[in-house]
Nucleic acid binder design. Structure first.
Lengths: 249, 249
DNA sequence: ACAAAAGTGTTATTTCTACACCCATGC
DNA sequence: GCATGGGTGTAGAAATAACACTTTTGT
């Protein structure tokens, strides 16, 4: 149940995080299932009067994933009147998920700041529920459950933003484990861009950026020819994305 | 003086507009000078409880410029604690610009949503002051006056965003008069990008997009060889920027 | 006539796209 | 040994970057 001193928070303001991970060649987001209800929500929180909005987004990210120092970017403010669903609030209230002291605060008009985060899937050992959810799971962005309020719109917009920023943000370095194969990196790009890329051209272009280091190791144990393992040259990566990698995927 | 029923507004939330215009080959922004004070502010406003944030930004834009149906985009939420300046608020209050009933409301922590607008300079016949300003003027972004709160940061971020979106947004069509010359269009691009472009390559590339119509008229009366007048093919322009014009200026 | 800006083409370089065969591994 | 995915090169097309002279106009 949510029960807190509402007067220490900015009224009508929340943050919501779209936390992206990459696993089994699928782009996933971390979602919360509301207790005893059939809809899910983005991990979110409220903004303390003495806390910056970015700071609160980081706090949300850390409470759900246990991770700190994660790539996290604000991408849009959702400020329409009526973006929250009265029906969903009714359900939350009916399930006793909102303290009666907080009900009127929750029912007010809310705007929310959207953030997206890129995390290494395997680093999230224990996705943690919040007070009103019963599960915290990775969901493939191709099969999303019913979502609270306008959270599906928020998620869609986050994905759009990710696509646009692919060449300007350290996408790979945050979503992949430290060592990875070229096909894995390509699959990540294909998943984000939602289109297939040519294997040879992709490899040539990636290597051309000179941001990868060949570890001279190979991934063994998996089927077929064992692929080479690469890692990012962090310094060069940082420098390269400053000006944006070259365009047109 | 500002004096209104604060309880019909979202507390701690404002919108600020960076209104860009282009004149004399310079990129300009519309700013307000506070009455009897030596600092300027971005045109801004508050968000009514029953009004969308975008809607309020449009209202601000219309009240300062008299224009409707203008290109206006949200670009960032400024949510740091301490982004407003106590000293500036002191000054406003000392000048009697804030009604005593509103003072405590104004002194609270505020976040603001940044919007940028692109307007045709000559269409703004009468930049209109608001209740606490004495002038509303175009300022070149190269010589900006002292600004209130974090408004300079907001302006800088707007300019950055404009640069990035140059190939994705109908920049020219909104900032230039209906008919314009190729050198004018080039100067606009050079100003936004803050770097010189090759005249021949620029022309070839622009014409290659097939979004311009040669009017077969010339600008006369100005010195030197009279340049050709072009206008945008609106439909083609709209279509072209959907996928983004090709990159790498 | 002259100063200043507008108009115009070509070439070398780079980047992009499309495409097919061999190799290594686990089963 | 075979099915599967990993690795590799080349050639044609397109885009980009660099560069100089002529034309028009107002003064």
């Amino acid at each position: 149940m949510i029960d807190f001193k509402t007067d220490s928070f900015q009224p009508g303001l929340s943050v919501d995080c779209v936390i992206f991970g990459f696993h089994n060649n699928e782009l996933k987001v971390l979602l919360l299932k509301m207790k005893n209800l059939d809809f899910w929500a983005l991990p979110g929180g409220f903004v303390g009067k003495d806390h910056g909005v970015d700071e609160e987004a980081n706090r949300v990210l850390e409470s759900r994933t246990g991770l700190t120092d994660i790539f996290l970017r604000q991408f849009y403010l959702f400020g329409n009147v009526g973006r929250t669903s009265t029906e969903h609030l009714d359900s939350l209230e009916a399930q006793g998920l909102i303290s009666s002291d907080n009900v009127s605060w929750f029912r007010k008009r809310f705007i929310t700041v959207g953030y997206y985060a890129l995390v290494e899937y395997s680093k999230v050992k224990q996705p943690t529920v919040d007070d009103i959810s019963e599960r915290c799971d990775w969901c493939s962005i191709n099969e999303l459950p019913e979502m609270m309020h306008d959270h599906l719109d928020i998620l869609k917009k986050a994905h759009e933003t990710l696509k646009k920023e692919l060449n300007y943000q350290p996408i790979g370095i945050n979503l992949l484990p430290q060592e990875f194969t070229m096909p894995e990196l390509q699959a990540l790009y294909e998943t984000i861009l939602e289109k297939p890329l040519d294997r040879r051209n992709f490899r040539r272009k990636m290597l051309g950026y000179e941001i990868l280091i060949n570890t001279d190791k190979r991934r063994t144990g998996v089927a077929h020819k064992s692929p080479n393992l690469y890692k990012f040259d962090v310094k060069k990566y940082q420098k390269a994305i400053q000006g944006g990698l070259s365009q047109s995927w």
